[in-house]
């Protein structure tokens, strides 16, 4: 219930109406959105119980390692009510045709299987916010100083996920396990998404804000 309360307000893509549609506009819109989402994600992380008690170095390592998983999971959850469309933001819903026309098809194809997976599980908001926190704490960063402290946070989030399973899904004792088993696909999807943005960065045609660049470079 704490994670539900600290769930961030939605933010909007606000594509620039003066720029003609096309690859550059679509990618500029997404990079700008991602930069603002990152600010929100960093603020959100601080509200995960126990996160702010970790050392600043460990907080940084976890975010640098998992930010794209958190970002992808948010897009996926927003897209659950849609068919073949990705809700990057409420004012930026992209179907396959739009994705093809605006150079977002790679991203589209990478993220949709994860949407299908969570649809099949009928994942609920309580589960989603818990999984998002688990993705952050379970980032497998190689640079964690206090491994035990991170493990304790993982354990309490894992326990929350199991409690949800045993109270809301008595019909399926494996519910929490099924949700945890989606995390490899999330990591794979985030890796493909990062790859997409790395190549955009290398091409240099799309402006990227400093925080987004800083976080991309941390994953390089």
């Amino acid at each position: 219930s704490h994670l539900l309360v600290v769930e961030p307000e939605k933010i909007y893509a606000m594509p620039d109406p003066t720029v003609p549609d096309g690859d550059i506009k679509a990618l500029t819109t997404l990079c700008d959105l991602a930069d603002r989402e990152l600010v929100v994600i960093i603020g959100w992380a601080k509200h995960i119980p126990g996160f702010s008690s970790l050392s600043l170095t460990d907080q940084m390592s976890l975010l640098q390692s998992a930010w794209m998983e958190v970002l992808v999971l948010s897009i996926v959850f927003r897209s659950l009510a849609f068919e073949g469309e990705l809700v990057y933001a409420d004012d930026y819903v992209v179907d396959e045709e739009h994705a093809r026309l605006s150079g977002l098809l790679d991203l589209h194809v990478a993220i949709l299987p994860l949407v299908q997976r969570y649809k099949k599980l009928q994942v609920e908001k309580e589960e989603f916010v818990t999984l998002k926190a688990i993705a952050l704490l379970n980032s497998d960063s190689m640079h964690i100083e206090d491994v035990d402290a991170v493990q304790r946070l993982q354990d309490s989030l894992h326990e929350a996920l199991q409690d949800l399973g045993s109270s809301q899904h008595t019909e399926d004792p494996q519910r929490a396990g099924k949700l945890l088993m989606t995390l490899p696909l999330l990591r794979q999807t985030a890796a493909r998404t990062l790859q997409h943005f790395f190549s955009i960065k290398v091409q240099g045609k799309v402006p990227m804000h400093k925080l987004f660049l800083e976080m991309l470079e941390a994953k390089a």
């Binding site: 960093i42 603020g43 601080k46 600043l56 907080q59 975010l63 640098q64 925080l211």
Partner: peptide
């Protein structure tokens, strides 16, 4: 960590 100035600053902000 010098390279990650913005993340560092945002985490230190109390809000």
């Amino acid at each position: 960590k010098e390279k990650h100035k913005i993340l560092h600053r945002l985490l230190q902000n109390s809000t």
